[in-house]
């Protein structure tokens, strides 16, 4: 660091061995660096979801009015949740699809182990085959896929179609075509009764 032109205490240059002063300098510098890093953390962590965002983490939904072939969209943690009451043909279509046809073979179901496979039973509600509960956000770049309303274009596989970049999902919400890497995510939920779902 110091060269001959730098005005500098020459007595310090003579010592080849580290001195007590060197140790103090490194210790003080190191301590200051740790302190600065610790002070930085609150400045960064303040951006994470705050207590009020975390507290909105459960929602109850009444599904008594949703007939077969219909779907509703509810909000949970600021995200749309797709709840679809599937018809028998839709269920059959999803069941007949071999796993090898799926770009993403994992169930992506928060209620099952992470390595569960994406067969229809692992995607649909437990013991309630017609019901499909999913986070309605395309796994590509976060758009809301079309397919919840009766008149919507549902893509080649009869499930959902994302208008942003053309991802297509089947009747079990599994990605079949387009740039999205994963099946539509399934949130943690449970049936509180025959007509009530608790999400979160």
């Amino acid at each position: 660091m110091a060269n001959n032109e730098t005005p500098f205490d020459p007595s310090l240059m003579d010592d080849e061995e580290p001195t007590r002063r060197d140790v103090i300098l490194i210790a003080a510098g190191g301590f200051a660096a740790i302190g600065a890093a610790a002070a930085l953390w609150p400045l960064l962590d303040q951006m994470n979801p705050d207590a009020s965002a975390l507290s909105l983490a459960t929602t109850e939904v009444d599904i008594s009015h949703v007939d077969a072939g219909q779907a509703i969209t509810v909000m949970w943690r600021g995200k749309p949740i797709f709840i679809r009451h599937r018809t028998d043909t839709e269920i059959a279509k999803a069941k007949d699809t071999p796993l090898s046809d799926l770009p993403d073979q994992l169930a992506r179901n928060a209620n099952l182990p992470e390595d569960a496979l994406a067969d229809d039973a692992n995607r649909a509600a437990k013991d309630r085959e017609p019901w499909l509960v999913m986070i309605g956000i395309c796994t590509h770049l976060g758009c809301i896929p079309k397919g919840q309303s009766v008149g919507d274009y549902k893509g080649e596989f009869g499930g959902w179609f994302c208008p942003c970049h053309g991802s297509q999902y089947d009747t079990a919400g599994r990605i079949r075509k387009g740039p999205a890497p994963q099946n539509l995510a399934i949130p943690p939920y449970a049936f509180a009764s025959d007509t009530k779902i608790k999400i979160g």
Partner: peptide
């Protein structure tokens, strides 16, 4: 989620 400060925009 850190950028959003929540679970969505």
């Amino acid at each position: 989620q850190w950028i959003w400060g929540g679970f969505s925009v």
